[in-house]
Amino acid sequence: MNAAVEPSKPAPSIRAENVTVTYSNGHVALKNISFSLKAGTICGLVGVNGSGKSTLFKAIMGFVRPSAGEIRVAGLPVNDALKRNLVAYVPQSEDVDWNFPVLVEDVVMMGRYGHMGFLRIASDADRRKVDEALERVGMTAFRARQIGELSGGQKKRVFLARALAQESPIILLDEPFTGVDVKTETAIVNLLRDLRAQGHLMLVSTHNLGSVPDFCDQVILINRVLLAAGPTAETFTQANLEKAFGGVLRHFRLGGTDLHADDDRRQVTVLTDDERALVFYGTNGDAPRSKKEAGTKSADTTTYTDTADKAS
């Protein structure tokens, strides 16, 4: 399917400049956040609960207005970008009413609304895009199911298909791996990589620290203020993560005689919030290990460990 970013649309980008969001009760949810993301990027948005991840999403979609600073999407003010169908959103599963009387294909068709006329009557092209989107996430066989009858992973894929059908160059994903089996997680990650190759920009909020170095090329760490932002290799460090998560994460450090009898000073550090664990291995543990590196360096440790089976 031709999901490549159409040349007629402006190049995808998200730019936040000194964004501060204050709620009407005086609560400052975000303070002085600045970052800039370009086309062909998967950016992980990482932080503890209540760190302002959802608020940042809301600000990018114009639900909350920054009390200071500005967000520009593809160079446009947020509301203009939304009117031009530039942003797609994949909601958190708990935000969806699964009892709503809609079938899988109806949900995906809603992704096409921005391409339809006043009466939202589907054209042949709209139907074809829906078919293609369902095919691409492997949900064609389930298209006539009511959405509440699906498994956690299938539910997620329906909303991914809706975003694909929408053909927006920018996709925001809110906790796409929560409650999803490992197979679906891999499928989602592969899909996101394909979209990145086609020039899409994706911002993914996640708790799943272990998979971040796997597929995110950029990372933003927040806790009301911006803690760090930049390429994963430089930003997703043990020091920054400890800043972001304080005492919230489980933290194991294995080194020296725990691991081996020689005087190798490298140690294994495991950071986990009970999803997939993040493992650092080295003398000071300042760079995350990716699967590729694990193969080329010493094979005496497994880089990735699933500490807990995730709920399916």
């Binding site: 114009g62 939304l82 009117k83 169908n85 959103y89 909601p91 809609v102 809603m110 992704g111 609304y113």
Partner: peptide, 13 residues
């Protein structure tokens, strides 16, 4: 669309 998913409704304009 609005009753089902307000956020998405916004993103389609």
């Amino acid at each position: 669309a609005v009753f089902f998913d307000e956020t998405h409704a916004r993103t389609v304009g």
